[in-house]
Design a binder for these strands. Structure first.
Length: 429
RNA sequence: GUGGCCGUAGUUCAACGGUAGAGCCCCAGAUUGUGAUUCUGGUUGUUGCGGGUUCGAAUCCCGUCGGUCACCCCA
């Protein structure tokens, strides 16, 4: 056993997990591009002050922060939105609005790790900057829905919980509650489902509210509330509204969200939220000391909880397995039946690879049976046998178990032709 | 940062104060030009690490490092 363990809260990616991670990346990237988003990336470390500016001093509890050799206060990024705001506000005149950007990369939070929450995790972020209309939120929600569908997660398996912070602002204004209580109040709403009713009541009393009137308001905030009208019309036109459930308890933790807020939840496994986001119209102004005032909205989806859901959802599991097989399999395995032919076999290996065909072979002399077993283990579609009959070589279809003989000079084009044919057999069943 | 539970071969687990074991995986052979199954043989550990109690510790105690759960937080 190795003397070393991974650092607390960090993960290894052995080939199988790495392939699963790449499948998730590929899917995120494909759907985001389909929606016209451009990929960007920021640094993994930023000045700790960048996060203090956005979220206040207490945020350092959850920051993975340290001093560098020049005593600078540095943090591993806990999210990318501050970096995005910094990048966009620095060069905002270079980009036509609305800016539609996405990013995939690791983030870090110094928390107690447990299943579904590690100190390093990977997030997919999609943001739209420079347009404050409900069409922006609709586009982001549609993207989130299509990402889930692309993974093979259906309407039976997930739901978008949608709300709008404005409805609570209106409620508080109607009740003549001072603005200074807004954040405290939203924190209470955020926990209202998990906390005991009498505790919630106790926390509401100093603000001047009762649980009964809050519950009554929540019950009345349905999909016909004017705050959702435009969003509903947009998503209904796209045929996506059935994925939405209005839920006034969704307020999203910290302060910067301004209007629409939403989270993606699974319906069957009681997992943590898969994704969350909303509009944050004041953040760019805050981060640029008022120099650049751009409305914005976005969401983030983590790889950890998503990975758990994909394993537990049959339809998604099937797509994942297919993708993993496609990523790990090779096209053909070259079998050296007669060591005297190895130079010819190596020449063929290189020619086949130059033609873009995925090839593997045994480094040293091995029994033919072992080599066929290796071909099977690598999920090869074909075995190419170099033996005494050279310059004829044998091509065996490992799925159909049939074989034929071709001249070595025609090998590359023959294999290319065979790979065009649909694979039929037990591997695909 | 606080508290509960857990840590044994590559892996999944057993042994629960008295000589550390099994399945799977891996390697070789049965089978010297064709994949399954089966059979035979083989490799593998300072029991996470450090200390203590004991004639004797994987086992009990303390510390520490990881994992997991709850709190916290969820940008």
């Amino acid at each position: 056993m190795s003397t070393f363990q991974t650092v607390k809260g960090f993960r290894d990616f052995f080939p199988e997990e790495c392939a699963r991670r790449n499948y998730i990346f590929d899917t995120w990237r494909a759907v985001a591009r389909r929606y016209g988003f451009m990929e960007y990336e920021g640094p993994l470390v930023e000045s700790t002050d960048l996060y203090r500016k956005k979220s206040g001093d207490e945020i350092t509890n959850q920051l993975y922060c340290f001093l560098d050799k020049a005593k600078r206060e540095i943090s591993l990024r806990p999210e990318v939105t501050p970096s995005l705001a910094r990048m966009v506000t620095a060069r905002q005149r270079d980009f036509k609005k609305p800016i539609k950007w996405f990013q995939i990369g690791p983030c870090f939070r110094y928390e107690e790790p447990q299943e579904g929450r590690s100190r390093e995790f990977i997030q997919f972020n999609a943001d739209i900057i420079g347009d404050s209309s409900p069409a922006t939120s609709a586009e982001l929600i549609a993207l989130a829905i299509d990402v889930m569908r692309e993974f093979g997660v259906s309407a039976d398996d997930f739901i978008i919980r949608l709300s709008n912070r404005e409805i609570w602002n209106t409620f508080l204004a109607d009740k003549n509650i001072a603005a200074e209580h807004t954040q405290t109040f939203l924190q209470i709403i955020d926990k209202i489902e998990r906390a005991r009713p009498e505790e919630t009541e106790k926390k509401l009393t100093p603000i001047g509210l009762t649980l009964a009137e809050v519950r009554a308001f929540m019950a009345a905030a349905d999909e016909n509330h004017p705050a959702f009208a435009e969003l509903k019309a947009n998503l209904t036109a796209r045929g996506l509204w059935q994925h939405i459930r209005i839920d006034a308890t969704i307020v999203r933790g910290l302060a910067y969200y301004t209007g629409t807020v939403f989270e993606v939840f699974d319906l069957k496994h009681d997992l943590r939220a898969l994704a969350g986001g909303g509009s944050y119209d004041k953040l760019c102004a805050l981060m640029s000391d008022g120099h650049v005032d751009l409305p914005a909205a976005g969401f983030a989806m983590g790889d950890v909880v998503l990975g758990i859901l994909l394993k537990k959802t049959p339809g998604a599991q099937m797509k994942l397995t297919e993708a993993l097989l496609a990523a790990s399999s090779i096209d053909a395995y070259v079998v050296v039946a007669d060591e005297a032919q190895r130079p010819h076999a190596l020449a063929a290996v290189q020619s086949l690879r130059a033609a873009g065909i995925r090839i593997d072979y045994s480094f040293g002399s091995q029994k033919v049976g072992k080599q066929f077993q290796a071909a099977e283990d690598r999920k090869a579609r074909f075995a190419i046998v170099f033996g005494a009959e050279y310059p004829e070589v044998v091509i065996k279809n490992l799925i159909a178990r049939s074989q034929s003989s071709v001249p070595a000079t025609n090998l590359v084009e023959e294999i290319q032709k065979l790979l065009q044919e649909p694979a039929i057999g037990p591997l695909i069943a």
